[in-house]
Design a protein around this nucleic acid. Structure first.
Lengths: 145, 145
DNA sequence: CTATTCACTTGCTAAATACAAGTGGATTTT
DNA sequence: AAAATCCACTTGTATTTAGCAAGTGAATAG
């Protein structure tokens, strides 16, 4: 039984510490990335997304993200055993954070493997990228393995 | 002997995963925050900064941040047993990420406890704040405990 | 020269993550 | 209509990481 980072460790009147209580771990932001950039939305898709999160940890993070109001889960109308996760407005509003992380990795280490077209778009058309994300249009497709 | 997140867990051609290998944990970004918002600091200052990081974890994170080229350590000219840590250009360039996290926490949860003046400055004078950080001018003084 | 400060280390316990193997209900296949 | 398969999880258990208390050694203060 893993305990998500939602288990308030910091709790110190600081907005960074506050945010880290929600996504300050190795996996949470990757789930948000999948939802935000790649349009992945199911449990199985997250598992297959490349980095190999453990099933119990994934379940725990999805619970925590839902509890934090960042994602919501809904039944897939076409398949009742499938759940579709999506970002709430609060989750979508993490887009600028995600974009700045991508930019930073891209600028400071080529091993980051940022897709060139995405890096260019973030630089030249940041508002357009943000608009795509807000509208739920995937910005970058999977490239890993 | 703790192992920092630098122990490449993800390693998947993705800039987000790449960045998380460096600061995807509960403490690393808080160290960067201390340096960025409050200026250069010592080991003791990090320990006393409010949230209560363990001494061994702090030592490990400082090592990892130095290895990643995000901070540098220098002897204090006035006291040879003291080390002064500061951000490299690569570390300073995380400023936009930090600012977006602050903005997000502030917008979505008042419990984040963002200093009002800082929140306003980020909104009204983002470039000014970034310039202060790049120039090493502290942006926000300590408020915690 | 004794006490204290400073940046750590070391040893141990507790918690979180990784890994392997289920479980149960919903579909698809035969 | 059974049987097999899919899907979103749960349940152990081993391994790794974090948390806590107590050092250590070099530098400085008294």
């Amino acid at each position: 039984m893993p305990r998500s980072p939602a288990a308030k460790i910091h709790d110190s009147d600081c907005p960074i510490a506050f945010a880290l209580d929600i996504f300050g771990d190795r996996w949470t932001l990757l789930i948000i990335r999948d939802l935000m950039l790649r349009g992945e939305a199911t449990y199985g898709a997250f598992l297959g997304a490349g980095e190999g999160i453990a099933t119990n940890v994934l379940a725990d993070r999805l619970r925590a993200l839902e509890a934090a109001g960042i994602i919501t889960a809904a039944q897939d109308p076409d398949n009742r055993r499938r759940k579709l996760y999506s970002l709430t407005p609060k989750g979508l509003d993490l887009a600028p954070v995600i974009l700045e992380i991508i930019r930073w990795s891209d600028v400071h280490d080529h091993r980051a493997g940022t897709p060139r077209d995405l890096a260019r778009r973030i630089e030249k058309d940041r508002e357009g990228v943000l608009a795509d994300i807000r509208a739920g249009r995937p910005v970058s497709r999977r490239r890993n393995r």
